[in-house]
Design a protein around this nucleic acid. Structure first.
Lengths: 350, 350
DNA sequence: TGTTAGCACTCAATACATCCGAGTGCTAAT
DNA sequence: ATTAGCACTCGGATGTATTGAGTGCTAACA
């Protein structure tokens, strides 16, 4: 369990640090020497514990809330705990099943899966969950459809090879020829199917424009239509679940602090870059390791999941620095493995 | 402005009640007699005001927070204010423009408009905004598309005549004949286009099943596919904006209370029925007039908007009972009028 | 030499007393 | 009918004492 002497810490210091952090994670109360000495795992007197605690404080792993209070872990303490002490928690049968089951579902659509995952993960962890859909550099256009609703309006539907559906309704430019509409769609499908969607607008400009000019009666109208229907900013597909779990944490009884956090989470522009920037694998950002001020009392734990083709999505848990790291790691790990497996089964078995 | 003697209240009582409620709505502080007497509109001494306030309290329109405090409006007071005293606020040029502009947008898709509206209304009012999409009894299927992604999966897309797009990916039943897939889609479109979507599943059972049996090679497979793709529960289309505005209200510094509210708003099943049940027009539910306990300190203001064809959607503002009723009414009024106009222009001009 | 008992000390939390002032209700004067 | 005057109320702020959980340090001990 305890991996012996690491850094400069003795085994006993490791033990004390672990017990304190475990206890604080559970109770959110400063931990005193007497309290520790009473635990089964510990066979020293309060006085001895006090000495060790004083040393751990000098080393920066513990803090006091006031001069005669018990100790709480510092951010450095959590960092050490996460890096060297904790071992992933064995998840309960029930927790494993819930995650597994959420992927066994026959309906398998990125949007729904992500939305659902955000929900389930937040239920299991009681933290806020953020799921960022995969980056779409490699996603290719599968098909374009245009469905006219009436004389004036129609819906353009883009389907990508990853099953993402984007739709947009638009006004049909006054008295556009019906056959021109059809021709336009045909030209689009012919030229654009299989094209990575990041190149879409570029290709419309270079290739499609010219074809439209040649084959449709009213080139100007068709082009106008295209612009209306397809110049859509890339949507960041972000799914947040269990936002209000934050309110249950004792460290967030201060409404102002909660407000600051909510503001961040309600702005995709604030939160998306945080997840996009993370490297592959599981990462933990403790307290001030988060650049955003409102998250200084929070831990953000991120993990990536893979669609193959070097395409990654990110999932994150946001909780207090006093997060149940062992459990969170296990859950995030299991989820991202399952997610990756499911996605690859769906999209890459040719 | 003041409509003379109503109920049993004298003009002066009306004036005092109005001034108190207006002031309390603004400041959230109990209003004292001295404070009122100083206002320009009021030309009586504090003592006189005190007498009137005592009477208004006896009648149940005002309350004290403690025996020597100023007065705050009771729920009955707000009700009276809303019904008889207040006059809609003249909106600023800027506010009107923001609402108008949000409809002038060329992109016109129900989902986006509603999402956008929830956002704008919450910005303008600083209350939480809930937009419930129109009930779809009359919505008809426009077209069905199936886009195969690869050998095993495909996406089914349903477009309704109101421009709503529903999509679902599904597994293609093992080695389903390609021509059978096409035939199935053709049969579906032929038989189901124009059908109100509430009857969809029924019609598949009665009419389509039989046709499939007749014209496709592997009837069983096609039918299996249909079931996978189209048996979708009716989604309640609910859009919430500015949830965290609640946190800015001084009456919600109590985290527990906020949590209760958030829980309600995060459950569609809780909040949707509230809006669905409202009658046409604008309605105000003050404090305990809301059945849900967590909303006992809130006012819910609902308004309906129309798509024609007797189809209604609902928009609502949720704020403290100390809501700026005059402004909220004006904004909701303007919005729902604009929304109705826009929708009817889009969907009913043939 | 590492461990622990003992003890003085610290400080947040709690309770309690006091004071202040905004606000009321009532009475008597205008 | 209105208002000035005044005694009274009570929440909130401020000050003080008490309590108890916890510490650091020292000296004794195995």
């Amino acid at each position: 369990m305890l991996t012996g002497v690491i850094d400069m810490l003795t085994n006993r210091q490791l033990l004390v640090l672990k017990v304190i952090i475990d206890d604080f994670i559970e109770t959110a109360q400063p931990v005193g020497s007497r309290h520790i000495a009473k635990k089964d795992q510990v066979s020293y007197s309060p006085a001895t514990i006090r000495n060790e605690m004083a040393d751990l404080e000098d080393l920066g792993y513990l803090e006091k809330t006031h001069s005669s209070s018990g100790r709480i872990p510092s951010e450095k303490g959590y960092r050490y705990y996460v890096d060297h002490i904790m071992s992933p928690l064995q998840l309960s049968k029930n927790e494993v099943n819930q995650i597994r089951y959420s992927f066994s579902n026959r309906m398998m659509e990125l949007e729904r899966v992500m939305q659902n995952s955000a929900h389930i993960l937040s239920e299991l962890t009681r933290y806020t969950t953020i799921v960022l859909g995969p980056q779409v550099y490699e996603t290719k256009l599968k098909q374009i459809q245009i469905v006219p609703l009436n004389n004036q309006s129609a819906i353009a539907i883009l389907v990508t090879d990853k099953g993402h559906v984007e739709h947009r309704s638009f006004a049909i430019p006054g008295d556009l020829d019906q056959s021109d509409l059809e021709k336009t769609v045909n030209i689009l499908n012919e030229k654009l199917a299989g094209v990575p969607i990041v190149y879409l607008s570029q290709l419309i400009e270079t290739e499609v424009k010219y074809l439209l000019e040649k084959y449709t009666n009213d080139y100007q109208k068709s082009y106008e239509l295209l612009n209306q229907a397809f110049f859509t900013e890339q949507p960041t597909n972000l799914y947040v679940g269990g936002k209000s779990n934050i309110l249950a944490q004792p460290e967030f009884t201060n409404v102002e602090r909660v407000r600051a956090l909510f503001n961040i989470m309600e702005n995709e522009e604030d939160i998306a870059p945080l997840l996009k920037a993370t490297d592959e694998g599981l990462h933990i950002f403790i307290g001030h390791e988060n650049k955003i001020e409102a998250m200084n009392k929070c831990t953000l734990m991120t993990a990536t999941y893979s669609l193959g083709d070097n395409q990654y999505g990110t999932v994150a848990l946001l909780g207090p620095t006093r997060m149940d790291y062992a459990k969170a790691v296990s859950i995030l790990d299991l989820w991202s493995t399952q997610m990756s497996q499911s996605l690859q089964k769906w999209f890459n078995e040719q």
